[in-house]
């Protein structure tokens, strides 16, 4: 069969799927794009065409800029911490010790919990009156009086990051553990005979096998962290004083709380674009990492 007729056939076979995708993704997306050029409200009239007004207002507005910074802070710190914790946990769980299998199973638990359950759990831990964190810190003498961890702008974001890390580092650990098990035993043995210490062994023996999978974990986690909504919505709703209002929360508030559908749509599209750029940059990075290890 010739190349062109193969291609034609491939497209023909893909057609039904493409049609479905256009219907469920393409059409709403187009609708959102249309909406973003209007001053439509959530209920009532279709709104008037206002050109790129929404975009200009959004980007130059202080809410957007502040949310962008909050989101970046949340994503960078939590993903970085998750990567470090995940790799350390994987290294530990890759050692030979009694009860390893049980511990490996337990470790996945936080990640397996629904986010809402996890968020509720941490709200209890942070509770200003009977929370475990306050109790523990006062008992060991690190804290004089109970604090409202989620209620103070200074600590709310950090508290959220801790909760998010606890939930998501197991995913990184799982990916890293799988990678560690792919490190050939002979290479580890060779490095022992060659006299490599733990640091050199990590750098020259383990890291080459870890880098690719970790890059994938990094991409997954950064994009997810950038879009974060549920854990924050359950724990702080973007407060206090908007100190935890990430972009997704802002989109929700704009479109649904303030019922400004048009400007909400423009905001949503900006966030989508940012995530897409992030994804593209990472994809290039992953290709590069994979290429250098081949």
């Amino acid at each position: 069969m010739s190349g062109t007729s193969m291609t034609t056939r491939a497209w023909l076979l893909l057609l039904p799927l493409l049609a479905v995708m256009v219907a469920v993704i393409g059409w709403p997306l187009a609708d959102t794009v249309g909406l973003s050029f209007t001053d439509a409200k959530l209920v009532g009239t279709a709104g008037n065409f206002v050109g790129i007004d929404n975009y200009v207002k959004t980007i130059s507005g202080s809410n957007f800029q502040r949310s962008l910074i909050t989101t970046a802070e949340f994503a960078i710190i939590s993903v970085f911490a998750e990567m470090v914790l995940g790799v350390l946990a994987a290294l530990l769980l890759n050692q030979q010790f009694y009860g390893r299998t049980v511990l490996r199973g337990l470790m996945i638990l936080p990640w397996a919990l629904p986010t809402v359950v996890n968020a509720t759990l941490w709200r209890l831990i942070y509770n200003p009156e009977y929370g475990a964190l306050n109790a523990a810190l006062t008992q060991i003498g690190l804290l004089d009086a109970y604090r409202s961890w989620l209620g103070e702008p200074g600590t709310a974001l950090a508290s959220l990051i801790v909760a998010d890390c606890w939930k998501n580092f197991p995913l990184v650990a799982l990916i890293a553990l799988a990678a560690l098990q792919a490190v050939p035993r002979d290479i580890t043995a060779a490095s022992l005979v060659d006299g490599a210490g733990p640091f050199s062994r990590f750098r020259f023996v383990i890291l080459p096998y870890l880098a690719g999978p970790l890059m994938v974990a990094l991409v997954l986690r950064t994009i997810e962290a950038f879009k974060v909504f549920d854990i924050i919505w359950v724990m702080t709703r973007g407060g206090p004083a908007n100190s935890t209002r990430t972009l997704s929360i802002l989109v929700y508030q704009e479109a649904f709380s303030f019922q400004r559908a048009g400007s909400g749509a423009s905001l949503a599209l900006i966030v989508t674009l940012l995530v897409a750029v992030l994804a593209a940059a990472y994809a290039a990075l992953v290709r590069k990492t994979a290429g250098s290890n081949a």
Binding site: I187, A190, V193
Partner: peptide, 18 residues
Amino acid sequence: PKDRDIAMVFQSYALYPN
């Protein structure tokens, strides 16, 4: 192993890939 004054060659070569 590093202090035994030995060197070893493995079936799978075991070279450091990067």
